[in-house]
Design a protein around this nucleic acid. Structure first.
Lengths: 181, 181
DNA sequence: TCGAAGTTTCAGTAATTACTGAAATTTGAT
DNA sequence: ATCAAATTTCAGTAATTACTGAAACTTCGA
């Protein structure tokens, strides 16, 4: 590893816990991400000085996040791994997986809680707050879904507009005056 | 705790680790969020059957995330805690804190890595990928900043439009034809 | 079908993170 | 200033999570 790659890999290792992955998984991803060629598990274990089995587990997790994909090389029985380099694709994948893992279970729980009959005034208030939480998460979730379908260019354009979008919305409101909003 | 509140608190405890907080912190937040009145630390420790000091630590963390705020009651020396109930406000707070904790350190690292002189072809390729990662995170970061300034209503409107935004953008492109995009 | 190369699983251990209770500190009324 | 109520800190311990190495399994060529 060159010093440049080393600092990148090191950072991903340290940030891992904040991002909900462990040190090794972060390092493996970083290493694959900047590697010019696909890497095999042994190379990774060797470079990161950790056990082969740890790499195996880490790769499985990264695949479950769809952050690395396997690649077969003709005439070589080993499995090689590479990371999508299109940053937009990576972002969309991450957003989608996070939605699935971090939001969907909560939505399910909230939906069932909202079906219960409140047994007290405290329950009624609790349910009211759960409803506002549900509605927001639901909205964000649907929105993610929609945005995911936009191509990178459109998204970038949208983002570069930033808060100017507000003015755009006001404009449209005028054009199709009589909107229910 | 009523069964309704219990299942909500329980869920937040379980999801805690996925969200980067621990069980107790998740439970404390959930409890405060649905409580009709502000709670004091002793009540929380009592309800969750955990130590007073654990609650103290948890509250400190939740305050650092700006998810709960302290409230003083006249003639009572204890501190009471309540959670903002406006879901939009909560979402913005979370997005902002996450940006600060999960994205900013990486941006800093990437910026300094991009200033280095690549020492090899591998370094050059690595740096190229780091640049695309940097540019995306930077874009997202700025965008969050902008969007944060929008009021809840505008944001909700924008989200409800979902992917229709694309058509809106195409339309604007036509209006001010000759755009550099 | 055998064996070698490659991969995964898993039980045990190391490292980290969470929690507790006691002691120290802070706060505010008298 | 003093005291008591409230809160925080922190060292020790419990619980959880990460990692390793050995064994089991899989795959493919001969």
């Amino acid at each position: 590893m060159t010093p440049l790659v080393q600092s990148f890999v090191g950072h991903f290792g340290e940030m891992g816990s904040r991002w909900g992955i462990n040190r090794t998984v972060g390092q493996i991803y970083a290493l694959i991400f900047v590697s010019p060629t696909a890497l095999c598990a042994d190379e990774i274990a060797d470079t990161l000085a950790c056990s082969r089995s740890n790499v195996s587990m880490g790769l499985k997790e990264l695949q479950s996040w769809r952050l690395v994909k396997m690649k077969h090389v003709a005439g070589d029985r080993r499995e090689f791994f590479e990371a999508p380099t299109d940053a937009w694709e990576v972002f969309r994948t991450l957003a989608e997986e996070r939605r699935r893992r971090e939001m969907e279970p909560t939505l399910t729980m909230l939906r069932s809680a909202l079906l219960e009959e409140p047994g007290s005034e405290a329950d009624r208030i609790a349910q009211e707050r759960m409803r506002s939480m549900h509605d927001l998460i639901d909205l964000l979730s649907t929105w993610f879904d929609d945005v995911q379908r936009l191509d990178a260019q459109t998204l970038a354009k949208l983002m570069r507009m930033g808060s100017k979008v507000q003015k755009l919305l006001e404009l449209t409101g005028q054009l199709k005056s009589g909107s229910k909003e």
